[in-house]
Design a protein around this nucleic acid. Structure first.
Lengths: 215, 215, 215, 215
DNA sequence: GATGAATGAGGGTTCATTCAT
DNA sequence: TATGAATGAACCCTCATTCAT
């Protein structure tokens, strides 16, 4: 159904073997993300991953320990990328600056890395059996953000809201453009090859949130 | 077929055969929804469905034609239930009445039928291979809603927004309480057996949306 | 592939139950012959037989003891019909009269009862595991015919031949018009609905045999 | 592919891998021919084929794509072998030379490759669902042979006959020694291990045909 | 390091038959 | 007599993984 995009190495050059090996693992990871995103852990097949990576199934199994281990690895990687996403974001210029930036980054990530977002969403839908290990740190960050939001309310910069639910809502809206991309495209008539309008989406979400938070 | 929400076997009693057969199909459908929601079409196993339904795999296959057909059936059923959800909602009392009601219904459905919502979300994530047949009608309704929203803006009842994106955002936020229920529970410390606070969630989402739409 | 011709009772009338039951068995036998002829004992399905008989699989199994037993029954029946075929044939008017008649009867039977002939041929191809019980009598008749043929040679009416092989050859040629009917039709351009030309076939086979036997 | 008659594994020895693989496919093909000949496409089981080949069912499925594909392959192979059978036969030494040779070759093939002949016959009995693709060329050859026979009649070398039916009759008689081998053995008292008398059979068929064609 | 061959477990599904009414 | 429901065995085939070179 979906065209199996073969992920190829840009070019290998005269690099040393170790690096070559590392790059092949990158290719495999990229292929795995797409396959896992589309079919989940159980529905994904190592054959499918191998095909997308452009290698044989035997070769794939030479590079990975097992399907589960590969899944865990890409999941961890996605979680790390997720955290990196907010590197350097300004926390102390008030809610407007922060939320505009935060939402824009999330929307951009959803539009540029839909498979990662879908894979993550799928894992959570399944009950997040592998994520509980990773979530400890994530929870920290979430609570920190909650305190930030409460602080804004204390200062009268925004109205008082449930800070946790606010975060859920922002996540939901922005991630929807990865999770529900097909539906969004279908309903809005944007064909499959064409990108969704990132600026427009960011603006609409930001407006809804910022105005929705006015005291 | 359209109205029947998914039910678990209430009681078999001294029922007549026809009803018994119908009820077993209901049990199977309920089991299938959970299995499909957790693993997708490809990852779901008929053995898993049979186990959840408490019957043998052979018996399951006596009641269904194939895994695909069962999947299509529950998907169609969910779509129909979805549409029925908004039966009798008041369209002409202005945005506040409508949106409050609409959001409340969506939140309630997500909290009471999380598996259905997850199954639907999974299907869309996978590219909606089976949904395109059903979406024609759904698109109609979406466009109708868009005109309603635009009308409110014309009357100055709300500010001008992209009506399609507004709908996506409401869907995203409300469905998140099914899709991301585990994450929500984990982050907010609500244990797995306990229900999420429906009234609170409805109020928060409604407030964000209504205030976010103020002219 | 082949159109499953449903074998229906001519009409049941106000007959007593026993007769009705007997007639249903006839219908089943007829259906079984077609199914067994097309797929052999192992490849035939009771569902296929039931479909061809126009009854449910359960009902079929109510009337038969097992697939094997039904197979044995129709096989026995065919063998009996086979023997009846030569009732009243004149043995003492010389080879020409006898062989003309014999060949004509065999050709006619092949053209009017191809399924029976195919079923029999299939059984023999398989090694005739069920036929050995029936063949004792058949062998008697074959040996009797051999003596008849040898007698003609003794009288100088025909040249001396291996009488057993002569019988094989006649069987092979005449039965081919049932066994290989599709090939015959294809090669000669006769479409599937149209009957093969019985008189022509009989004449050609008879001529070959009678002339081939001239002293 | 065309010339290779079915072989049983002669000896594996210290052979290279490619040849080993090729030989295993040969073993599988030989096993498949026997199983298909005995039970037809539907009645044949991959377990049965695997057993006859002396390998596990899983291993069998590693070497074949599907039961259907294997059936098609052996059928094609048989058809090709069939055609090769008449390589180098002399067409221009008159009917006697040609037919003697032709019949002898057919009889020999039936006696040495009975399973192949039975498989082919079974396919035709079942309506030849897979053969129609291959028969186009076969028909050509048949028509060519018909013209040859007509030519002999034109020259007065044989009497005028239906050339197509003559071919059917020769096929029928010669192939009968594969199709009906069990019956032939039973009736003539030749036990199962012993070979039928090829020279005698060839002579009897040839005599019947040549004399039967005398002007 | 790399790869064709192999495999035990399990996948979905059909089968002839029996059960229960 | 008749029939829906049920079932254990078997069906063809794929799976993730390991073996052997």
């Amino acid at each position: 159904m979906a065209t199996a995009a073969v992920v190829t190495l840009r070019h290998v050059g005269r690099g040393d073997l170790a690096r070559k090996r590392g790059e092949l693992r990158d290719v495999i990871r990229a292929a795995a993300i797409v396959e896992f995103a589309e079919h989940g852990l159980r529905g994904a097949s190592t054959q499918g991953i191998a095909d997308r990576a452009g290698i044989s199934k035997t070769k794939l199994h030479y590079y990975i320990a097992s399907k589960e281990e590969l899944y865990a690895e890409v999941l961890t990687q996605i979680t790390a990328t997720w955290a990196d996403l907010f590197e350097g974001i300004a926390l102390d210029n008030g809610p407007e600056a922060f939320l505009s930036d935060y939402i824009a980054r999330k929307v951009r990530f959803s539009l540029t890395h839909p498979a990662e977002v879908r894979l993550f969403t799928g894992e959570v839908m399944r009950g997040a059996p592998m994520l509980h290990k990773v979530w400890a740190g994530s929870r920290e960050a979430t609570l920190r953000a909650s305190r930030l939001i409460d602080g804004w309310a204390d200062q009268g910069l925004i109205r008082r809201v449930d800070p946790l639910l606010l975060q859920f809502h922002i996540w939901a809206m922005t991630e929807a453009y990865a999770v529900m991309a097909v539906e969004a495209r279908f309903m809005s008539g944007v064909p499959e090859g064409t990108a969704l309008n990132e600026a427009h989406i960011s603006a609409e979400v930001t407006a809804l949130v910022l105005r929705g938070l006015r005291p």
